[in-house]
């Protein structure tokens, strides 16, 4: 039901990030039910490259209970090649602003949420793109 739910199905099925493109030209990511720029409701899916760079970061030494086994970890705001920004985990010990990163899929993540149908879902994370790798 609706684009926000569809995003997670597409991530699971196609293992790629998708954004919504509005008729006004805005690329909406993370997806929203309507376009934040023009308030329009007619948008279509476009595939994102999954590449971007770290815009802001932190290294967390505390986390909600379902994450404490993974501490410390790097949470970042990533600026995607196509423009939008997204929050995610970056798998690195040495984060830096400007570091190039690529989306990777964690196949199954158990999230602490009430909805049984959504509790287990794939999750997008990022890893650094090695220097010299232009892929």
């Amino acid at each position: 039901m609706g684009a926000v739910s569809e995003f997670w199905d597409k991530l699971k099925g196609e293992k790629k990030l998708f954004a919504l493109k509005c008729r006004c030209g805005a690329v909406v990511f993370p997806p929203q039910p309507s376009c934040p720029t023009c308030n329009g409701w007619e948008m279509e899916w476009v595939e994102l490259s999954g590449r971007g760079e770290i815009y802001a970061y932190t290294v967390s030494n505390i986390a909600p209970p379902s994450f404490t086994g993974k501490l410390p970890f790097c949470v970042s705001i990533i600026k995607l090649e196509e423009g939008p920004m997204v929050m995610s985990i970056v798998e690195t010990d040495r984060p830096e602003i400007g570091m190039k990163v690529q989306m990777v899929l964690e196949e199954k993540r158990n999230l602490d949420i009430p909805d049984e149908n959504w509790r287990e879902r794939p999750l997008y994370k990022f890893k650094p793109i090695p220097a010299g790798d232009s892929a």
Partner: peptide, 25 residues
């Protein structure tokens, strides 16, 4: 946000830490 932030282990200190990282940069 339960969809776009909580799945990544965000806490309030880490949200403000992200702001701090930009201000320092």
């Amino acid at each position: 946000d339960r969809l776009w932030e909580q799945p990544f282990g965000i806490t309030f200190p880490s949200s403000y830490a992200l702001l701090a990282s930009r201000h320092m940069h």
